[in-house]
């Protein structure tokens, strides 16, 4: 099985600070994982953990002042350091992205159908009518009833769920090898969320697309993902098959995150909390970034932990608990 996305030691730093006191915010730090074609890989973490920055780095959407090191290969082609022209060639073609807010990712003045057709014509040599035909087929595929009726509608005439379907149709227009979905359902109600997730699930099977699904919601992860990566303060702390992650969370942060969900332990008076705050990423942090809040901290944590394999899981921790959930 070939990897549609392979990250190796990907790091992203944002220059910041005042003149005479330059600093670098280390937003992503040495992240490595692969996503196979036809697989949904969930990337979960809290705000500021670097999950969206990671996605933007892969798509080449970060400002030019950003310092990116390491490697990101999409369908066996390196994408870090590509020229603008090469990035444009990649975006919407081999790799496509779906953002959280469908109402701002569509041009409000354009008919929605034309926006899909536009994406097709940008990468394929087809006539206008062929592009329109393909767009209509895509609209049917993402479950819009009456596509020819909807084709000429402006985005504001559609509901939030329909708009997100249009965005997904546009993303899939050129059969990308990789689809990155950044919080695609966060703005939607639960019933719509379930529908959109089912749609993404169905499409990746039909097109054999690799999906990188970025979310803060462990429920979304549980619903559709095959494997999961957990990020904390820019570092990937655990990668595991989804069932394994929920049944046997290994990293102390993963455990804390799972325990903090309401309903995690039924009938519990109080929810488990994580003491302390996420560290300031513009400061130099040696070793494991979770150490300052970790109940299992030992001296070795001052050195960045190596990833170790435990069954199907890979965990970056020096002091792994043995056995199941505490």
């Amino acid at each position: 099985m070939t990897a549609s996305l392979a990250l190796d030691g990907l790091s992203v730093g944002f220059p910041t600070g005042a003149l005479g006191d330059p600093r670098i915010v280390s937003a992503v730090d040495g992240v490595s994982f692969t996503v196979a074609s036809g697989e949904i890989f969930g990337l979960v973490g809290e705000s500021g953990c670097g999950k969206s920055t990671l996605a933007n780095a892969i798509m080449g959407l970060l400002p030019t002042s950003t310092i990116i090191t390491g490697s990101a290969r999409v369908h066996d082609a390196e994408v870090i350091g590509l020229s603008d022209a090469a990035l444009r060639q990649m975006r919407g073609n081999t790799a496509a992205m779906v953002f959280q807010d469908a109402s701002t990712s569509l041009d409000p003045t354009w008919p929605v159908g034309d926006q899909i057709a536009e994406t097709i014509r940008a990468h394929q040599s087809v006539t206008r009518s062929e592009a329109k035909e393909k767009a209509l087929a895509l609209m049917t595929e993402v479950g819009l009833t009456d596509p020819s009726e909807r084709y000429g509608d402006a985005p504001h005439r559609l509901s939030g769920g329909m708009r997100q379907r249009i965005v997904i149709a546009a993303a899939l227009a050129n059969n990308p090898k990789l689809l990155i979905a950044d919080e695609p359902t966060t703005a939607l109600d639960v019933t719509l969320q379930a529908q959109i997730l089912q749609l993404i699930d169905r499409l990746r099977v039909a097109h054999n697309t690799a999906v990188l699904l970025i979310t803060h919601d462990l429920g979304v992860i549980a619903q559709v993902c095959d494997r999961v990566g957990v990020m904390y303060a820019g570092q990937l702390v655990e990668v595991a098959p989804v069932a394994e992650l929920f049944a046997n969370p290994r990293h102390p942060y993963t455990r804390a995150l799972l325990a903090a969900r309401p309903g995690a332990q039924s009938g519990a008076e109080r929810l488990a909390v994580i003491p302390g705050q996420v560290p300031d990423l513009s400061e130099e942090i040696a070793g494991c970034r979770f150490a300052s809040r970790c109940p299992r901290r030992i001296d070795a944590c001052a050195v960045t932990p190596a990833r170790v394999s435990l069954g199907d899981s890979e965990v970056a921790c020096w002091n792994l608990p043995t056995g199941g959930t505490e």
């Binding site: 006191d21 909390v273 003491p275 302390g276 705050q277 300031d280 300052s292 809040r293």
Partner: peptide
């Protein structure tokens, strides 16, 4: 746990506050 959280916060703020200046 809360007091721990406060201490950690105070440290973070003490570090970050003086760096905030309007340029």
């Amino acid at each position: 746990m809360i007091s721990q959280s406060i201490t950690a916060t105070a440290i973070v703020l003490a570090k970050s506050a003086p760096r905030r200046r309007h340029r």
